[in-house]
Amino acid sequence: MRRRHPVLELDIIKQHVRLEPDFEDDDTLLDTYSNAARRLVENRTGRKLYATAAEFPKDGDGNPTDENALVLDDDLVTAMLLLIGSVTGAQIGTRLSMKLRPEYLRVLLAAIVLLVAARMALGLGWRPDEIFTIEVR
C-alpha cells in the first residue's frame, strides 16, 4: 500500500497537542493519526483531500480531472486537529491515571466537578451590564 503525504503538517499537529517542535519521539505516531484523520474525512465526504488546488490532478489542458477533489480549508483542518487531539489527550489521561493513586484521581475529579458547578452557579446569578454589545466603527 502506497502511503500518501499527510495533508496536515507535523508542525501544526505538534502545536495543537502542545509538543515541542524538536521532540521527535512521537512523529511516526502523529503521522499515523494525521493519515487516519485524512482517511476519515475522505470516507465521510466521499471526496479526496488536497492541501491546495494546485495539487489537483490535471489533464493536458490544465483542467482538474478529479471531480471529487476537495481543498483542505480551515474547518477541515480544525476537525482533523480535534480528532488527533482527542486521541492524544486520551493517551495522556491513561498514562497519568497509571501513575497516580486512585484516591488522588477521585479528589481531582471531585475538584473539577465542583469548579464546573461553581462556574454554572455564578453564571445563573451574575448578570452582565449589557447582554448584547454592538460596536460600530
Score class of each variant (00 low, 15 high):
Arg2His: 07
Pro6Trp: 00
Leu10Phe: 04
Lys14Met: 13
Lys14Ala: 10
His16Ala: 12
Val17Asp: 01
Glu20Thr: 01
Asp22Met: 04
Phe23His: 08
Glu24Asp: 06
Asp26Tyr: 04
Asp27His: 03
Leu29Glu: 10
Asp31Gln: 00
Asp31Glu: 06
Tyr33Gln: 03
Arg38Tyr: 00
Arg38Ala: 06
Arg39Trp: 02
Arg39Thr: 06
Asn43Glu: 15
Arg44Cys: 10
Thr45Tyr: 10
Arg47Lys: 15
Leu49Arg: 02
Tyr50Val: 01
Thr52Met: 06
Ala53Arg: 08
Ala54Asn: 07
Pro57Tyr: 10
Pro57Gln: 13
Thr65Tyr: 07
Glu67Cys: 06
Asn68Val: 06
Val71Gln: 02
Asp74Pro: 04
Asp75Ala: 11
Leu76Gly: 03
Val77Tyr: 00
Thr78Ala: 12
Ala79Val: 04
Ile84Glu: 02
Ser86Cys: 11
Ser86Asn: 12
Arg95Ser: 14
Leu96Ile: 13
Met98His: 08
Pro102Ser: 14
Glu103Lys: 07
Leu105Ile: 15
Arg106Lys: 15
Leu109Thr: 13
Leu109Ile: 13
Ile112His: 13
Val116Asp: 11
Ala117Lys: 10
Ala117Thr: 11
Ala117Phe: 13
Arg119Cys: 13
Met120Ala: 15
Leu122Met: 12
Trp126Gly: 06
Trp126Val: 13
Pro128Ser: 15
Pro128Arg: 11
Thr133Ile: 08
